[in-house]
Simulated assay, not measured.
Amino acid sequence: MSDSPKSSLPVVKENSEIAISFKLELADGTLVEETQENEPFRFKIGDGTFINNLENLLVGLELGTTAKLTLSPERAFGLSDPNNFQTMDKADFPEEMALEKGHVIGFNTPTGDEIPGTIHQIEGDKVIVDFNHPLADATVIFSAKIEEIFS
């Protein structure tokens, strides 16, 4: 029999369904997203809800644990790729759509998925769209509390 006390708290596993309260912010404190009080976010580890790096950081945490992690761009949403800038014709956009620099628009891919594109520049009848993740190149701070572990 071992002398060291073993915790009896449930632990997040690689395929656990869990509920967390979380906050995602930029290094300068700008809030990106957070859960509302008493409304934890429920998901299954590995289902693609969060980027793998964030999910992997939750694995092994016990119920009730709070983690606060600062992630470099490489560990969070990646670095921007110059090949992800596309030039499109203004005519390709709905007439009623306000095209402004910094505006994020959902684009449908040939496979039926939707990806975000940020208007980078407007030059005459051409629109340059940045298809890098909106948080590419950003250092982010991810704070999460394990509220429930269902499996």
Rank of each mutant, 00 (worst) to 15 (best):
I149N: 05
G64E: 08
A98G: 12
E148K: 15
K23Y: 01
V127K: 02
A19K: 01
T111E: 15
F150S: 07
T49P: 01
S143G: 07
R75S: 15
N53E: 13
V129G: 03
I105S: 01
E148P: 02
K23W: 00
E55C: 10
P110M: 10
A91S: 15
I146W: 05
A67G: 10
D137P: 09
F43N: 03
E39L: 15
R75L: 15
E14P: 05
M1K: 05
I122T: 10
V12S: 00
V140R: 03
Q121N: 13
M97P: 00
T70I: 11
S2A: 09
K68P: 01
N53P: 06
P40N: 07
D89E: 15
I115L: 04
K90M: 14
N38G: 07
H103F: 10
M88C: 02
I105E: 04
P5N: 04
N108F: 02
E17H: 01
V127R: 01
I149T: 07
E34F: 03
D81M: 02
T65N: 13
I18T: 01
E95Y: 11
D47A: 10
F107T: 03
N84K: 13
S21Q: 09
L26F: 04
S2R: 05
P40C: 08
V140N: 03
D92V: 03
N52I: 08
F43C: 04
S4H: 05
I119M: 10
E123C: 05
H133Q: 05
A19M: 00
E148T: 14
S16V: 04
I146F: 04
F22N: 03
P73V: 14
L63Q: 12
F85L: 14
D92S: 14
V127Q: 01
D3S: 09
K23T: 15
P5C: 01
K23L: 11
L54A: 10
K101R: 15
L135G: 03
E33L: 13
L71W: 09
V32E: 07
G117I: 04
N83S: 11
A91F: 07
I20K: 02
A76D: 08
I122P: 03
D81S: 14
F85R: 14
E39F: 13
T118A: 10
S72V: 12
L99Y: 04
P10F: 01
I149M: 06
E74N: 14
G46M: 07
A144E: 07
T30C: 00
P110T: 12
S16C: 03
S4N: 07
Q36L: 14
R75H: 12
T111F: 06
F150G: 04
S80P: 06
I45M: 06
F77S: 11
N52K: 14
T70W: 04
R75F: 11
I18A: 00
T139W: 04
S72G: 08
V129D: 00
F77H: 12
E39Q: 14
L61V: 07
G102H: 09
G78Y: 07
K126L: 12
